[in-house]
Amino acid sequence: MSRTLFKSVLSCLLVLVVSAFWTTPVMAAPKPPSPDMTIMAVGWHNEVTQTRALYQCPAFHCNQGQAYVGNDLAEVCTVWQSGVKWGLVFNRANEHSGFIPVDYLKYADPPQSCNNVGSGTVSQNNYTLYQCPYNYCNQGFATAGDDVAAICYHVANNFYWWWSLNHANGHEGFRAAAGTGGYPAC
């Protein structure tokens, strides 16, 4: 083989290898499972790697709570909305709840879809869903006829609250309750 032909073949191979390298998609490494895989009441343990907002619905324009580094987040489900995969979490440290893009979470997400999470009931009345279990927190809503699923109960200031997800409008939050309702503790 002549030297010129050899260089041409080598150049072509090099171009193929380099172009294949640049056009091959890079797969993101999967997130590790939580070191604490036990389920404490409800949800899988997760954390944020830096301070992040928790949104009252799966969209960046909704009311915001907070999650801080080191907070114990109970992630119960995920949902795709507008090209973003969101995790629904309850922050056990500050009692805020909400949706967060799963890319901001440190550990693997639960396999549960938010589309079928909780025990659904049809709302008989209009009521407020608070982003934490207190009347002064951010407010979402449920209207009569909405499919509102209770996920768990929480006790704050000696009152019962059901953490709920309104499947009709995507709002999540706490609503005052008369007792546990047979739901697990948050």
Rank of each mutant, 00 (worst) to 15 (best):
S2T: 14
S2V: 03
T4W: 10
T4K: 15
F6D: 03
K7I: 14
S8D: 00
V9A: 14
L10G: 02
L10E: 07
L10M: 15
L10W: 10
S11T: 15
S11Y: 08
L13K: 02
L14M: 11
V15Q: 02
L16K: 04
F21W: 14
T23V: 12
T23K: 08
P25G: 03
A29T: 14
A29W: 03
K31T: 05
P33Q: 06
P33F: 07
S34I: 01
S34W: 01
P35C: 02
P35Q: 09
D36L: 05
D36H: 10
M37K: 08
V42Y: 09
V42N: 05
G43Y: 05
G43A: 06
W44T: 07
N46A: 03
N46F: 02
N46I: 03
N46V: 04
E47N: 01
E47T: 07
E47G: 02
T49C: 00
Q50D: 05
T51C: 00
R52L: 00
L54V: 04
L54N: 05
L54W: 04
L54A: 06
Y55L: 08
Q56V: 00
Q56S: 13
Q56I: 09
A59Q: 12
C62G: 09
N63D: 10
Q64H: 05
G65E: 09
Q66S: 13
A67P: 08
Y68D: 14
V69P: 00
G70V: 12
N71D: 15
D72Y: 15
V76L: 09
C77I: 09
T78G: 01
W80I: 13
Q81G: 00
S82K: 15
G83E: 01
G83D: 05
K85A: 01
W86F: 07
G87D: 10
L88E: 02
V89D: 07
V89P: 01
V89Y: 03
F90S: 13
F90W: 15
F90T: 12
N91D: 15
N91V: 07
A93K: 14
H96D: 15
G98P: 03
F99V: 11
I100N: 06
V102G: 01
V102Y: 11
D103R: 15
D103N: 13
Y104D: 15
Y107L: 10
P110I: 09
N116M: 12
G118V: 09
S119I: 14
T121E: 10
T121D: 01
Q124S: 14
Q124K: 15
N126E: 09
N126D: 15
L129T: 06
Y130D: 01
Y130H: 11
Q131W: 03
C132T: 04
C132S: 13
Y134I: 13
Y136I: 07
N138G: 14
A144M: 02
D146F: 03
D147N: 13
V148A: 04
V148R: 01
A149G: 00
C152T: 06
Y153N: 04
N158R: 11
N158Q: 11
F159T: 03
Y160L: 07
W161V: 06
W161R: 10
W161F: 06
W161K: 10
W163R: 09
N169G: 03
E172A: 06
A176Y: 04
A178V: 07
G181C: 00
G182C: 06
P184H: 03
